[in-house]
Design a protein around this nucleic acid. Sequence first.
RNA 1: CGGGGCGUAGCGCAGUCUGGUAGCGCGACGGUUUUGGGUACCGUAGGUCGCAGGUUCAAAUCCUGCCGUCCCGACCA
Length: 469
Amino acid sequence: MQRTIKMRLSRYFLPVLKENPADAQIASHRLMLRAGMIKQASAGIYSWLPLGFKVLRRIENIVHEEQIRAGHIPMLMPTLQSADLWRESGRYDDYGEEMLRIRDRHGRDMLYGPTNEELITDIFRSHVTSYKELPLTLYHIQWKFRDEIRPRFGVMRGREFLMKDGYNFDLDRESALHAYNRHMVSYLRTYERMGLKAIPMRADSGPIGGDDTHEFLVLADTGESEVFYDSAILDLSMDGRTVDYDNRAEIAALVQEWTTPYARTDETHDEAEFAKVPEERRRTSRAIEVGQIFYFGTKYSEPMGAFVVNEKGERVPVHMGSHGIGVSRLVGAIIEASHDERGIIWPEGVTPFHVGIVNLRQGDGECDAACEKLYGALAAAGLEPLYDDREERAGAKFATMDLIGLPWRITVGPRGLKSGVVELTNRRTGESEEVKPEDAVEKVKEIYRPHQEAGLIEPMKGRYFHTWL
RNA sequence: CGGGGCGUAGCGCAGUCUGGUAGCGCGACGGUUUUGGGUACCGUAGGUCGCAGGUUCAAAUCCUGCCGUCCCGACCA
């Protein structure tokens, strides 16, 4: 049933660079260029080459899985929007130069969407009129464009970026706050599956507006935000907990747990509050923002006429929130959080290939056969290996594998095969062990089992890409 | 948007000050060699020197304008 297309490095497109590109200043940007993941098209705009595209899709996929798990509904809105809707909300003028404005052949004002509140509200008001259709949370993962004054740091601050943005519609404040909480919990699960420690921090709402908002931040020296937190929050973990997203009390308790320790960005930082944290637990750091959730009540529903009739027959504006995850930025953030001087170290949850197979004596009958057999066994287990079958020396093959960051490597050479073993190496620790080929396969299967199970939602069972959409 | 830097072969750079046949390293390609951490050697191909004007017998080099791009700062998923 499952057809396997063997991924041989000799037939793949992986333009790795031996030298550091001059333009790339931070690790993630440099490594993404060197590992052949992206190519700059213009300032802040990138092509995603096969390896980068694969990681992007893995991340996107986890986001989808966790959103669907939380009961949110995927859809897709266009990148180009009509200016009329934005005039209605009053943001056409507010947004300023950051919005890329375009005029079509009929002279109509269009724009490349920097976000989608207006569009989703328009969809909602056209089709939803009764409280009985609530609660509703719709989301999509789509390219956005913000004409940043100064794009930088590769995909971390691109002008074009891929973002998951979701919008909840609820009858009242309480329901909307449950939606807010539900998003926080689903986000925590999402980041954890990517091998990231992302801390929810009380933040400033910016131009989107609203009262309640949290940003999710990944600690990293190259981050653009300054953050202050109680180190106790680092001990918290979702630890793969399954949650009942309909259980308001359970979700609220989780949010309580994660928002109790002090954690704020510089925008909302309060020295007096911070001083109450025991001194040895007070931390300040740089961090990368990888998501944000908002509750903004009726800010858009009122001016744009998104009303429903409640059980008393009254027309009331719906309570809304919006929530975003920077999908393309996450690729950079994960690398910032996980690399060494040799290259990237992918967390198992997002790695483009699960394991690299390095053939040290290409053309040697025994080595070739052993590699093929390993590939077959791993693929049969639903894993994607990358087989380095190039006519290269060992050093070159190892250097490539280290650079592109596959977390596990199986090395096959004549020396080991003589005693019936291959080498299984952990990219992160550098530790190797000599094991029989079948044991290496078993071990790798075991490592990835939790990640495979985490993704098992009925509509997409056994698939990697979001083909259920 | 203020300040600074850089555009020369696919990548990294020298050459520009002081104008005179466009170079080096890596990579690519063809060989030989080597084979458990980017091997060594021989050979080959590859450039409107960002673009447009100007000065000059002669411009990568000097002058003017433009474009692109990176960094620092203020703003942002």
